[in-house]
Nucleic acid binder design. Structure first.
Lengths: 169, 169
DNA sequence: AGTAGATTGACAGCATACTCACAATGTGGA
DNA sequence: TCCACATTGTGAGTATGCTGTCAATCTACT
């Protein structure tokens, strides 16, 4: 079924990098949610919990840099995590604008319990590929994400997380 | 900077396939929007326009299958495209439930004019990689998306688009 | 013919993901 | 000191992306 020359076809969509990235993200989220259904946690909420666990007492702005997540959106995510009693917000004594984030005991427990499900989800995403191809894909994608970091609206700033250590009480 | 054994660190996030897919999608959308700012068109709206151009008279349900896009969301996308006068909705004479989708003259013109910008955006997404690596990444990702098609909530059904041909007036 | 079940588009609701704007607060330079 | 500027959290607004449900309609089976 040859297409007319000069005509726009669906190939312009199906073979475009952007389309493949969108599809893969869709698939990844679907697999994550399915595997973690029992815990009622989204991929973003999981990333936020991990970051707060790794950097107790981090504030929202720094958290957004650490997980490359828009600050406005993060506000809602934090609200939901707080409503589920997985994290706590405590005002900083040094800066009245800042609210520091901590895992609750329930949050820490959930993080421990959900790990096997998350690992299963991550494995499932790559499962259809041969092991060597999985490694190759991850290597290329890591590179590309790193090299394109500044192109996104919210670049990843992993080192930002360390700043609060000098200030915290 | 060694981490404690048994402790959960940010590596659990940064090296996870799901996180890389999310980051890459974020970056891809940012680049697309930036390149196509003059046309005020999102990646999803672009995909929908291409699909309607390729399959004039398609209905919303089949369109959602052709671009692997959730039907509920697609309703809003169609509304916005209609508001911008890029597409038209005409009731089907054969099935009173169905509304058939067509590009307007303005929609066709925009599709023609935006193509260079879209191509530039797609190229920019992969630019940081060496040409051979770009090909390798796209090949692996195409494979993975295809093999994982059923895992997503809205699997791609490219062949669905052909069904309306037998029915249309 | 008539009805059970499927399909279609629409709607409500939740969760990302971004824009811009704003008040409260903090910081550094004149 | 005081004032311009930056930062922090928050809010409104838009756009995906999903879950449901619903009425209208169509199809297939009896």
């Amino acid at each position: 079924m040859p297409s007319k020359p000069n005509s726009i076809t669906m190939d312009a969509v199906y073979t475009a990098p952007g389309y493949l990235f969108r599809r893969m993200q869709q698939i990844a989220v679907a697999i994550f949610v399915e595997e973690c259904r029992a815990f009622d946690l989204t991929p973003v909420q999981y990333a936020a919990l991990i970051a707060i666990h790794t950097h107790p007492g981090i504030d929202a702005t720094r958290l957004s840099a650490v997980i490359a997540f828009d600050r406005s959106t993060l506000g809602n995510v934090i609200e939901r995590l707080e409503a589920k009693k997985l994290i706590e917000r405590k005002p900083s004594t040094e800066d009245k604008r800042v609210k520091l984030l901590y895992l609750t005991r329930a949050g820490a427990a959930l993080l421990r319990d959900i790990t096997p499900s998350v690992d299963r989800a991550q494995a499932r995403m790559l499962q259809p590929l041969k092991p060597a191809d999985r490694k190759a894909l991850m290597a290329l994608l890591s590179q590309l994400v790193d090299l394109n970091n500044e192109a996104s609206r919210v670049p990843l700033r992993a080192e930002d997380a360390l700043e609060h250590l000098g200030k915290a009480g």
